[in-house]
Each structure stands twice: as structure tokens, then as C-alpha cells.
């Protein structure tokens, strides 16, 4: 971001000392505008009371807390925001927005930030959420519904997590909770068209 004001200390004062450059940036431009335009959320309304962080189920996981994320958006710290682990660990539980005195919609912001993070190729290493989302939506596009057993199998192959939770699928099969064949809904070609139009932003 280019500074809006750039001032050098007046000559005369502190004569002899190295000149100090002060750069003042306009708070709220850049990422905050982008987030507002695409999500409708208003990050600039946040006054850092941190009520969101006190109720957030993933605030203590060692990455950013929600109020810290909002501050980084306000100050246009694009790299820190888009490569953060927090945007991928948010469970979209909506506790923050329910309690926020300024109605800053952090879950909606995170939806937009996740998409930007993928577009710019800076998503934090180790998150399996993008692969899961892709596999999930692929199932919806082709079958019309999600077949949980295939979803889990394809997700495991694609995310190379073959041995995580290996006991779960057999246990669920034994309880009759994972039918081998899922239902399929007709209208596959119309559905593919719907997906194509929705992901192009509407219209053909």
C-alpha cells in the first residue's frame, strides 16, 4: 500500500541525528474494502472489545484470535491474514457475530478470506478443508446428494490421510450408519449447469 502521507523530520531539530521517516497509512483501505464489498461484513466497525474471542471455540488453538484477525484486516496485513491458520479453523458457529456489539460478521468475512487465500495460493499448509470442500461439492454436483461413505473414501485418498480415524468407518458400517450405495437424484446435466452458472457469478 502506498502511504498517504510521508513526512521527514524538519531540518534543524536534532541536528546531526539520522533523519527519521514517518509513514502514515490510510487505515481501512485495501483488504478491508475488498472484504466489505464481497461479504457485506464491516471490519472497520470493530473497536477491539474482544468479546468474539472470549466465546470463540477455536480462539485458543495458538493461531490468531478473531478480534486479532479483524485488526489485521483493518490494517491491511494481507499476507498475515490470508496465510493464517485461523481462517481455516473457524467452525462458522456464529457465536462471534451473535455477541458482537458492532455486528461485525466474522464468519462471512472468513468465507471470503478463504476464497482469496486459495486464489492467491497462500493457504496455510496442512489444512484439509479445501480438499474436503471440493470433494463434498463434487458429490453434490454429480449425485445431487452427499454419499458419506464415498465422501470419506475420496477425501482420504485425496488428502493422503489414509490412516487417520481408521476405526471409524467400520464402526459406522457395523451400526448401519453408512449405506454402501447412496441415492442419486436425476437432473444431473441441469445440476452441472447450475453449478457452472453459480461459480461464474450468475448468468450464462
Amino acid at each position: 500500500m502506498t502511504p498517504v502521507t510521508k513526512a521527514k523530520e524538519a531540518p534543524g531539530a536534532n541536528a546531526g541525528a539520522a533523519p527519521v521517516t514517518v509513514e502514515i497509512f490510510q487505515i481501512g483501505s485495501g483488504l478491508a474494502d475488498e472484504v466489505k464489498a464481497t461479504s457485506g461484513a464491516s471490519p472497520m466497525s470493530c473497536y477491539q472489545c474482544a468479546k468474539c474471542s472470549s466465546g470463540c471455540p477455536v480462539a485458543n488453538r495458538g493461531d490468531l484470535k478473531p478480534h486479532e484477525l479483524v485488526r489485521l484486516v483493518q490494517t491491511n496485513q494481507r499476507g498475515a491474514v490470508l496465510s493464517s491458520r485461523f481462517i481455516w479453523e473457524c467452525t462458522s458457529c456464529h457465536t462471534c457475530i451473535t455477541r458482537c456489539p458492532q455486528q461485525v460478521d466474522i464468519p462471512a468475512m472468513n468465507d471470503v478470506l478463504r476464497a482469496l487465500s486459495l486464489d492467491e495460493g497462500v493457504a496455510v499448509a496442512g489444512t484439509a478443508v479445501p480438499v474436503f470442500n471440493e470433494v463434498f461439492l463434487d458429490s453434490v454436483r454429480t449425485r445431487g446428494r452427499v454419499h458419506e461413505l464415498s465422501l470419506m473414501a475420496v477425501f482420504k485418498l485425496r488428502s493422503r490421510r489414509l490412516f487417520a480415524d481408521v476405526d471409524k468407518a467400520p464402526a459406522m458400517l457395523a451400526k448401519g450408519k453408512l449405506p454402501l450405495f447412496g441415492s442419486r437424484v436425476g437432473g444431473k446435466s441441469q445440476r452441472k449447469e447450475l453449478f457452472r452458472r453459480a461459480t461464474k457469478g450468475g448468468g450464462a
Binding site: D111, A115, L137, V140, G144, R145, R191, G201
Partner: peptide
Amino acid sequence: GWICCGSTAAHNSEAL
């Protein structure tokens, strides 16, 4: 003929 609502995967990826 109901289809999936898109759940978290859809709103994580594409608002429309």
C-alpha cells in the same frame, strides 16, 4: 427430488 443444501462446503467456497 430434493438435493443437498450445500452445507458448509458451499458457503466456504461460493456465496451464490
